[in-house]
Amino acid sequence: MDKPILQVVDIWKSYEDLQVLKGVSFELREGEVKVLFGPSGSGKSTLLRCINMLNPPDKGEVFLRGENITDPNVNINAIRAKIGMVFQHFNLFAHLKAIDNVSIGLRRVKGFPKEEARAKALEVLQSVKMEDWADHYPAELSGGQQQRVGIARALAMDPDVILFDEPTSALDPELIGEVLQVMLDIAKAGKTMIVVTHEMGFAKAVASEMIFLGDGVIIESGTPEHFFVSPKSERVKNFLNQLDVLYGSHEKLLK
């Protein structure tokens, strides 16, 4: 196997008195899809924000292709351009049409000329099946459509890795399928991804490894088969049961 794209080494993070992460480490290789799951408050979103330094860790290091990005001397903006992020609440730029949401990073960060950025953005919108909505503002799109534009916005930058922060948990049930399908396509195309999600159907389909996070530490990790056939800890078993009872699985939604 090649060298890991991303190494997360002993990440600690607290908010005032609350210790959210207590030493989390893992590695991510080219083309891998890592699914992070666990109860709310276990630090999943915080971990993602530590990885792209939107919320720098108190302790620990993150290496992107061997470069220590927690070093205060690195140009963090240039690093973030290589780490895509998809948000739970989409966070599309409300004043920009779908196409401009996708092209703004190309223009302002990568310095593409206007026409070139537009052409590339349109191409990426096609890959998430949103090209017909290119000239609509976010408020004119459904949640599922907004999230697909959000994914396109991250994809357009050709990042080394994309972080998904509960991308479907703010969506109405009937809209989840279209977003999961797009994520599945991207994963199958070989993108390296870290996905915080409770969509176990998605995890089963594409995860190369699943990580169960609880109380700020990795409680158990392994392949989807491991988790769905013989999880070790009682907490994981209970959690998976609860997920099944509450949400069922959306396996049917995935082709």
Binding site: I83, N91, F93, G105, M157
Partner: peptide, 21 residues
């Protein structure tokens, strides 16, 4: 703050995010 965070996640500096977003 989410809008600025999204801008920064694309690699824009804080100032660029404030200005463009």
């Amino acid at each position: 703050t989410e809008q600025l965070m999204a801008a920064q996640s694309l690699g824009m500096s804080r100032i660029a995010g404030i200005w463009h977003v």
